[in-house]
Design a protein around this nucleic acid. Sequence first.
RNA 1: GGGUAGGUUGAGCAGGUGGUGAGCUCCGCUGACUGUAGAUCAGCCGUCUUCGACUGUGGGGGUUCGAUUCCCUCCCUGCCCA
Length: 391
Amino acid sequence: MSGPFVSVSTRFEVDVAPPSDGSTRARAGRLVLPHGEVETPQFMPVGTNATVKSLSPAEVRDAGASIILANTYHLYLRPGHERIQRFGGLHRFMDWDRPILTDSGGFQVVSLGDLRVVDEDGVTFRSHIDGSVHRFTPEHAIAVQEALGSDVAVAFDQPVFPSSPREVVADATERTHRWAERSVDAHTRPDQALFGIIQGGLEPDLRAASTTFIANLPVDGICIGGLAGDESPAQRDATLDVVVPLLADDPRPRYLMGLGSPTDLLAAVHRGVDLFDSVLPARVARNGQLWIPGGRLNLRNSRFLDDPEPVQDDCPCLLCRRFSRAYLAHLFRAKELLAYRLATCHNLTFTLDFMARIRASIRAGSFPADMPDLRSRAGRSSAGEVTDKSA
RNA sequence: GGGUAGGUUGAGCAGGUGGUGAGCUCCGCUGACUGUAGAUCAGCCGUCUUCGACUGUGGGGGUUCGAUUCCCUCCCUGCCCA
């Protein structure tokens, strides 16, 4: 459907376009990358340090991941992108043979807080590891990603919290545009895709202008940044309702950065998003929260100490196939490493299976009618209210 | 049997030389987490009617206006000696 923009080995095919009646903007497609094909809508587990925390590559694959995200900033600091390059690139270094998207390090502009200073040319960081001073520019962020050899590189941007004052959002958005152009100019690898990032906060006019600006660049995909922060679901929906219609005829994938709860994923797919990533399923798993259809369980709660049932009885994951809730509850109390691994396996399996069901629903032409209404259910309520495991 | 050091809220402690002991770390309970400075963080963790109040320093007794503190006695624990 779309020809190459930057990468000659990347293309995006929309197999099922949104229905003409406007009932949903959800669509199903395939993103073809050097290391394989990614069915969309899709969720990318996050492997910041060239590992999805606590899992082996085989376990990530068995959970259903077809693409993962790694982080430019972290890998630049440790072990160093040049070292990874000497080892044959990120795929060989971490033994992951499917696609990898690298985040540019722009998000760390926000997440590292006081450890950084932004100027027009780039960002000066203080390492969160040893306090040493480093500098990222769009050109450097792209060079690092080319050395890592990810399938998809991402332009260096300046996100701000969605709730930031308009002047702050406008300033960061305009700088993000200039940095996007510089990222495009700096990018040289024809076997690596480059995605641009839209900013604009929650301001409709800034969002629209940013969408138009980024869409006019020769990039292979459109990232929607600056969300999955402190905005409300309604604000996020409203923002997507500004952005996606402007991309209705654009042949490239739309990637909402940072979104990860089932409720949020469903709502964003409905509004036309193709790709997602988030630390959420993995992080909450390490903290004891297990996702199941219709709700979630906090395995640190004492009520699970005598529960002989699996976390989810129809789940094929490493945890649910063999172990009881009681055993997992014990492992969490004992702070045994296996707890983190099993819980992460499950939440990623759940999330990726959920995305597979969304894709099947879209391809069957029945989306979103045959999807559970997570928003009114227990998707964000406490596990204590969940009693129906077959929901 | 003698000596000695102790006994503080589930555990381990801090403190306290006659006048305010509810402080810490575990454990435990609950919640949060969205492009990972996060296997983390926050709140609670004696009782109650919880912006406060009450109770609580092994038991009993004594001295004192007032005792965790001083005295007597008993119980319990560790160690040393017999």
